[in-house]
Amino acid sequence: MRIVAKGLTYTYDPKSPFASHALNGVDLTIEEGEFYGIIGHTGSGKSTFVQHLNALIRLTGGSLRVGDYDLADKKCKFIELRSKVGMVFQYPEYQLFAETVEKDVAFGLKNFRKDMGEEERAAAVREALETVGLSYAEMEGRSPFELSGGQKRRVAIAGVIVTKPEVLILDEPAAGLDPLGKQELMELLHRIHGGWCKTVVIVSHDMDEIAENCTRAAVFSEGRVAMEGTPAEIFARSEELFALGLDVPVTARCALLLKERGIGIETDYTCRDFADKVLALWRAKEGGHAQ
């Protein structure tokens, strides 16, 4: 499903003394098949934007189309849309509620696919749990509250992907995880992406995470899209990101410092590519010496 937003505006608490403009005209297109990154400070409007995508926040200004769904249309089937656009909130483990893992994961199915039979549902839950790397047999009957932090997060994600949404949106999915946990989570997302889940959208503060994982990204600032492009295009404009008070990946910072010393490196800013390009420079130099 292609996502097209035009002139999206949104105001919190309109007419009150605390009114704040969260979105000031967002124009953004996310093509089907992307692993899309959304970058920005807390309060830049990025969370408000993604909550529009499955109509958790109703459109109040501008236009938004997600696949064939026109969200400006009052007759739009919002519930159906939500089954196709999955949303994993920050710290999703804090939304677990059922007595067993089985029931918690099945919650979305019971809501969206009321006609589904017991067996079919159990099979879907099993698949979702296995996708996030948990064993159905071990987990199914346990209380979600007695699991470890990492397991809870996986169960929560399973509870969203159990309906196999075509678009999966995750707000800071790796927040609070340790480095290995982060890495495993990203691997999980890449595993899902490309199958039934065509588009992944992650909201993240972590520039290294964006550089390593995303095919494209948008930088939000003050309720607008300040930059859009591939990570290579965005991080090549490091100075602009600094001006917005944002970080850049370690590789981009390093490339910038090298550039100041007259060493230009063209890279997509993943660690691997950056190392390869540096090695290529070094080999060229060594080769030059050898001759």
Binding site: Q51, N54, L56, I79, R82, S83, G86, M87, F89, Q90, P92, Y94, Q95, F107, G108, K110, N111, F112, G159, V160, T163
Partner: peptide, 16 residues
């Protein structure tokens, strides 16, 4: 804030 967030999250999972 937390209540609003949980409501949104469960709505995203089809809660009515």
């Amino acid at each position: 804030d937390e209540t609003n967030r949980i409501i949104a999250a469960q709505k995203a999972r089809g809660a009515d």
